[in-house]
Amino acid sequence: MIIDEQTVDKVAHLARLELRADEKAEMIKDMNKILGFMDKLNEVDTTGVEPLVYMISENNPLREDVVKQVITTEGALLNAPDHDSSHFLVQKVIK
């Protein structure tokens, strides 16, 4: 498959891109390079090779969920610009 200006225009439209004429020429060249590389990859013999789903076969080590209080309410309110004894006070944003 060869990428032409109409194909680049269609892809640019789908991607909501506006390309100048010089950018289109560069895009045509770059997309043709990508497709050439893909053709090279298609030449590789992959018979007997299992599809790769995960990069590693190890399980993700999980840890026990532990609930703990890291910061106190007073500590959280220390740098608040406006607060009462236990809450942040913010301006009303919904009428």
Rank of each mutant, 00 (worst) to 15 (best):
H83I: 01
V49R: 03
H87G: 01
V49E: 04
E5T: 14
K33T: 14
M27R: 01
N59V: 06
E58I: 07
T46G: 10
K68F: 10
H13A: 15
L78H: 08
V11C: 05
R63G: 06
V66A: 03
A25T: 15
V90W: 04
N42R: 12
V44E: 03
I34R: 04
V53T: 15
F37T: 06
D9M: 05
S86V: 15
L19C: 03
T47C: 06
L17F: 06
L62F: 08
G75I: 00
V49Q: 05
V11W: 10
R63Q: 11
I34G: 02
L35C: 06
D4P: 00
E18L: 08
L52Y: 05
L89D: 05
D82V: 12
M38Y: 13
V66L: 09
E23I: 06
L52G: 02
D82E: 15
P51W: 05
F37Y: 12
I94M: 11
E58V: 07
N60W: 02
M1K: 07
I2T: 10
H87Y: 11
G75P: 00
N59I: 02
V49K: 06
V67W: 04
R63V: 14
K92F: 08
A15M: 12
V66N: 05
A76I: 02
L89W: 04
L78Y: 09
E23N: 03
N60R: 10
E50I: 06
T46P: 01
L17S: 04
M55L: 13
Q6W: 03
V93M: 10
L19P: 00
T7E: 08
H13Q: 12
E74K: 15
I56L: 11
S85Y: 08
A12F: 05
K95G: 12
P61T: 05
V67G: 03
K40P: 00
L77N: 01
F88H: 05
M55P: 00
E26R: 12
L17G: 01
E23D: 07
N79L: 12
V66K: 12
N60V: 11
E26F: 10
E64D: 10
D22K: 07
E58G: 04
D9K: 08
P61N: 04
I94A: 10
E23K: 08
D84M: 02
I56S: 13
K10I: 03
G48H: 05
D65M: 10
D22V: 07
G75W: 04
R16E: 06
R16V: 06
E50R: 07
A80V: 13
H13C: 04
L78I: 09
D30Q: 12
M1S: 11
K95S: 14
F88M: 08
L78G: 03
D82I: 08
S85V: 09
F88Q: 00
T73W: 01
K95A: 13
T46Q: 07
D9V: 04
V8T: 01
